[in-house]
Design a protein around this nucleic acid. Structure first.
Length: 273
DNA sequence: AGACCCACCCGAACGC
DNA sequence: TGCGTTCGGGTGGGTC
């Protein structure tokens, strides 16, 4: 159910780093080239013969850097996932990329074919073009307040806007608003300074606790060398419509906002007018 | 410029 | 071996 959000991406980066750092790509079978971005600077096959050197993320983007200064950037979107094996493995119908590396076979799968990847020479330039906002950890409250205050959009849409702050997807947006007791439809210009102070703290705590729980669960994945970053985090709002609010017992409501399923407690989360 | 809409994609869930 | 329709998720490009 849950798609990879920032905490899952962070976990995936760390697990892949453990297995693949210093490993050379011996061969590649790019079975569904449609995953490569139109604007990719280089073809994916350019990575054959290169050695993984650095593993990081920017927002929900995975960044793999190689010797010779090339970088492979992957956005998992909803269902992208890596499977690692210690020996060559038969691809499934959803295996879109196979990499034979020094000590591992890497499969990349995506049932929806929604994810995207690119090969670039300048990581910073790539992300500047994407117009990404700051990371959600250590965000400047003054900056966030200004961004929210100048907008008449619903606060949930603002939180989802990656040019305001990166890494908040649909699931954690609902969780963050539940925790701060802000109604998702509240317009940005109605949000108070105190709300923003709470948001800054809660954004960080919700995402980091998910990373911690992912770190716990991912150990079972490392043993089997399957890395999809999915793990169960206890959710108070997302996917819980019709169930009692964990804070007050009121039945949780569901609306569609900006085309996204949105769950909240109409008693705990009041719209400010 | 800011806000909004829609395409992309296909398995799951649903309606009949 | 039931078949057709709807839904959803993040991002980017287009429009107003």
């Amino acid at each position: 159910m849950t798609m990879p959000e920032l905490p899952e991406v962070e976990t995936i980066v760390r697990v892949l780093e453990t297995s693949l750092k210093g490993s050379q790509i011996q061969s590649m079978d790019f079975r569904y080239p449609g995953l490569l971005e139109e604007g990719s600077e280089f073809p994916l096959e350019f990575l054959v013969g290169k050695t993984f050197t650095d593993f990081s993320r920017r927002g929900k983007y995975l960044v793999f850097e190689f010797d010779h200064a090339y970088a492979w950037i992957v956005h998992l979107r909803m269902e992208g996932k890596f499977h690692l094996y210690e020996a060559p493995q038969r691809p499934t119908k959803h295996t879109h990329l196979v990499l034979e590396c020094d000590d591992h076979t890497v499969h990349y799968l995506d049932t929806r074919k929604f994810s995207r990847m690119a090969v670039v020479s300048d990581v910073d330039a790539y992300f500047i073009a994407k117009k990404l906002g700051p990371e959600p950890f250590g965000i400047d409250p003054e900056y966030l307040y200004k961004q929210i205050k100048k907008s008449t959009r619903a606060i949930k849409n603002i939180l989802l806007d990656q040019s305001v702050v990166v890494g908040i997807g649909n699931i954690y947006a609902d969780e963050i608003l539940f925790e701060t007791q802000i109604h998702p439809l509240t317009k940005g210009n109605k949000i108070t300074k105190k709300d923003v102070a709470n948001l800054v703290v809660v954004i960080e705590s919700v995402l980091s606790s998910a990373i911690e729980q992912g770190g716990t669960t991912i150990r079972s994945y490392t043993s089997s060398l399957n890395v999809n970053g999915r793990f169960q985090v206890r959710l108070n709002a997302y996917g819980q419509a019709g169930k009692p609010c964990t804070r007050c017992g009121n039945t949780l409501s569901r609306i569609v906002l900006g085309g996204r399923s949105t769950v909240f407690c109409s008693k705990c989360q009041k719209v400010k007018r």
